[in-house]
Design a binder for these strands. Structure first.
Length: 116
RNA sequence: AGAGAUGACUGUACGAUUGCGUCUGUUUACAGACGAGGAAAGUCCGGGCACCGUAGGACAGGAUGCCGGCUAAUUACCGGUGAAGGCGACUUUAAGGAAAGUGCAACAGAAACAGACCGCCUUGAAAAAGGUAAGGGUGGAAAGGCAGGGUAAGAGCCUACCGUCUCUGCGGCAACGCGGAGAGCGCUGUAAACCCCAUUCGGUGCAAGAGAAAAGAGAGGUUAAGGUUGUCCGCCGUCUCUCGAAAAUCGCUUGAACCUAUCGGCAACGAUAGGUCUCCAGAUAGAUAAUCGUAUUUAACAGAACCCGGCUUAUAGGUCAUCUCUAUUU
RNA sequence: GCGCCAUUAGCUCAAUUGGAUAGAGCGUUGGUCUACGGAACCAAAGGCUGGGGAUUCGAACUCCUCAUGGCGCG
């Protein structure tokens, strides 16, 4: 799915992104990102308000699975995907298309890069 | 056939492609093995384990409260007794002491442990006085209940039965049960009100902590600041407190463990034997997914975070066992 | 993960350690006043005291249990 080196794993880096990042959002998803050197790193945040542990875990898994095709093909940056309460009940396809829209809008991903 | 009661079990399966975590092996990219529940949940109890310059005494405070058993441990588990509910199978039950003391019992009612409102009887011309708790009315609770005798009217005043209390026989380890004799019975309820009696509790929780690494600034104190549990005594006996920086590693999973069989026990539970290496979750932004196919229904509640034992709560659909009542037929 | 606290009218809070109709302010609705509105005055509605059970004659208050919301701990 996602190797560990592509993941954000420290509380500090999350707060850094929250503080300095730019934001784009759809109804179900929110993307916060900071351009950086090196590799692209991603984190997922699903708040306690969205549901119980089973629901939250399911959403996180879906987000990881949706991101996996883009992994390694995105401009170097640190990103956090934040789920909103709208995401409950959405299918994998809907989440996936939302994510693609956000990545293109943020200018982190284009179709040419996918080919190369 | 219908309506119930109780106790259990199961709770998607198989396959394809792409992927995730841990371990092992070669080796740096592959291969193999394994990878979430009955409640992992709530955190309501009990323990293990860890630390706190010892946890020592007194007081205060908390918890529990029928009997026996089981256990590492218990008030919560198991079995029984009594009481309450149900036609019944069965269910529920924090169930010691109110005759040690204190408090409370609004309103109503004459009166709430103290005395006469109506009524009844006696005396009296009447007013009134006396007797009386059988009847009425008030209330959650009203002077043991009910029947007969008795009486001016009444009253355990007397008697039978039931209840209560005291003594006592038998059965039971015990709670208690079944009886017998006596006392006429002057004693309301509340202890999940204070309290009394008995038993019991040191505190903090893996964000406990361990051992490394690093080590600056400010304030206070010199025998009385500080620490030790809520207070006091007692004890410790020189640095103490605050702010800042840094947090990799271990603790972390082999354990009162799990499975199977036999035996003991009504049961909780215990004992013994076996399991060719039984050990096969152990993360730290936190691993089970995504896309499909097949099966009959599109499938509940729900995600380990130091580990166990119990309780409580959530749970679509399906299965089994033992019972009860009602109706019909034989 | 662990440890605590709270829940009363639409909102913010009371209710003398159990006693009967659960109060107050703001807000809402209606009326008086005014040419109209505000302010002021008068009146009314609005509560299964978060849900369920237990103790008690009687529970917002005591006990158990569930739910919701909030806080703290490196």
């Amino acid at each position: 799915m996602l190797a560990k080196r592509y993941r954000l794993s420290k509380r500090g880096s999350f707060t850094y992104v929250y503080r300095h990042g730019e934001r784009k959002q759809t109804a179900a998803l929110k993307l916060i990102y900071v351009l950086s050197r090196g590799e692209d790193r991603v984190g997922f945040s699903v708040s306690n308000k969205i549901g119980k542990a089973v629901v939250r875990n399911k959403i996180k898994r879906r987000l990881r699975a949706a991101y996996s095709p883009y992994c390694g093909h995105v401009a170097p940056s640190q990103m956090v995907f934040m789920a909103t309460e709208e995401i409950v009940g959405k299918s994998f396809a809907e989440i996936s298309s939302d994510m693609r829209y956000l990545l293109i809008r943020a200018g982190l991903y284009t179709d040419e890069k996918k080919n190369g």
